[in-house]
Simulated scan of single mutants.
Amino acid sequence: MPVREGHRFDEASLAHWMSANVDGYEGPISVRQFRGGQSNPTYLVATPSRSYVLRRQPSGLLLKGAHAVDREAAVQAALAKTGVPVAQIFGTCLDPEVIGTMFYLMELVDGRIFWDATFPDVGTGDRPDYFRAMNSAIANLHALNPNQIGLGGFGRPTGYVERQIKRLSEQYMADTVAGRDPNMDRVIAWLDHARPRNPERVAVVHGDFRCDNLIFHPTEPRIVAVLDWELATLGHPLADFAYHAMMYRMPSHIVAGLAGADLATLNAPSEEEYLALYAGSTGIADTSDYDFFLAFSFFRLSAIIHGIKGRLARGTAASPEAAERVKALPELAELAWGQARRAGAPAS
């Protein structure tokens, strides 16, 4: 789509930067904007010889630690040396004077994005292969040794859950423009005391691993690029998997979800089968914290949507679909509290 009002920037300045910093660049450029991009505005930058994707921070007042596009580029550059499929990074610009915010450029990867977790455009006999591809991709990510791929300092090696709860709770409380939700308040009060029971594991975690953040091969059940690494850090792999597997309990009108779907008719694996496949691939024998991590995941997504609500109110939301996404916040917060009750939270 054409670049939206409020998301435009100096294209001549970008072209000048690319000429000095991107190997093989040959102008001129033309710029269009991708639909979506709830957090960071994303653009197609086309030249006569190739096309690039530009990801930038939104303009305006930003919450501390949010929209870390520099980290997003850094993790993809590190993962390019592994079997985890990512887009090639062509350059990162930390100077906000170039286009108004920091940004990075990556390759445009050809393929398919599925916005529906039922994979409706896939043949019934092939559908299990798409689920296996997702499961394998996140398991392969979690199998990597962060120190061996240059990401040992990408985050603190311990305390991931505690830090996430603290940071997201503080952001929720601080964003007075977005207001409060009683179910969010209940979940936060419970999470302040609840913790996983098993010893902490450390892996590179994606933070938002969903089918719509994956590019599949144009014709094969194979992932050619994992997108949207903004929330990546070092953390607990089972927590990251639970956020992905949250699709089994997520209504499809909120984000890509399978709640209420007839999995047998779809020929899709059950949640229990999907968890067992991941556990077998990663060697995580004890998954008894899975329900806790699901509650934590619903809280995380609720907090993220709450942040979008605040940006929408302040006029800095990146996506035109932000208002629709925010409408689901009360239902999502209610689901988060329901998952907390399932994980042992007392009635209140």
Rank of each mutant, 00 (worst) to 15 (best):
L238N: 06
G65S: 12
E334R: 03
Y130L: 12
L312Q: 13
S252L: 04
E107G: 14
R186M: 12
H206P: 05
V69M: 13
D262Q: 01
R4D: 14
H253Q: 12
L191N: 02
N135Y: 03
E97N: 09
A268L: 11
I165D: 05
S136A: 15
T219A: 14
F241W: 13
A12G: 09
P182E: 12
Q76W: 06
F154Y: 15
L275T: 00
V3M: 08
G344E: 02
Y248M: 11
N198L: 15
P128G: 05
T47P: 12
W229Y: 10
A139P: 11
F103L: 11
R341N: 02
P48S: 00
N213G: 06
M106I: 10
A345K: 03
Y25L: 06
N198M: 13
V98N: 02
I305Y: 04
S136L: 14
A323N: 09
F209S: 00
S270C: 08
R56H: 01
E230W: 09
H236P: 00
R56V: 01
S136E: 15
G338F: 02
R341Y: 04
D116Q: 11
A279Y: 04
R197V: 12
V53I: 15
F299P: 03
E321V: 00
R132Y: 05
G179S: 10
M250G: 04
S39K: 01
V98L: 05
E170A: 15
Q148F: 01
T176Y: 01
A259V: 01
I284S: 04
A242K: 07
A189K: 05
T124K: 12
V122M: 05
G150R: 00
A323Y: 03
I149H: 03
I215S: 03
P218K: 02
V205I: 15
W337K: 01
I165L: 08
M106P: 05
V205S: 09
R300C: 10
A143Q: 13
A137C: 14
Y172T: 04
Q33V: 12
R197E: 13
S297W: 01
T158V: 13
R32V: 04
L312T: 10
S252A: 15
P48H: 03
F131D: 03
I149C: 09
W17M: 10
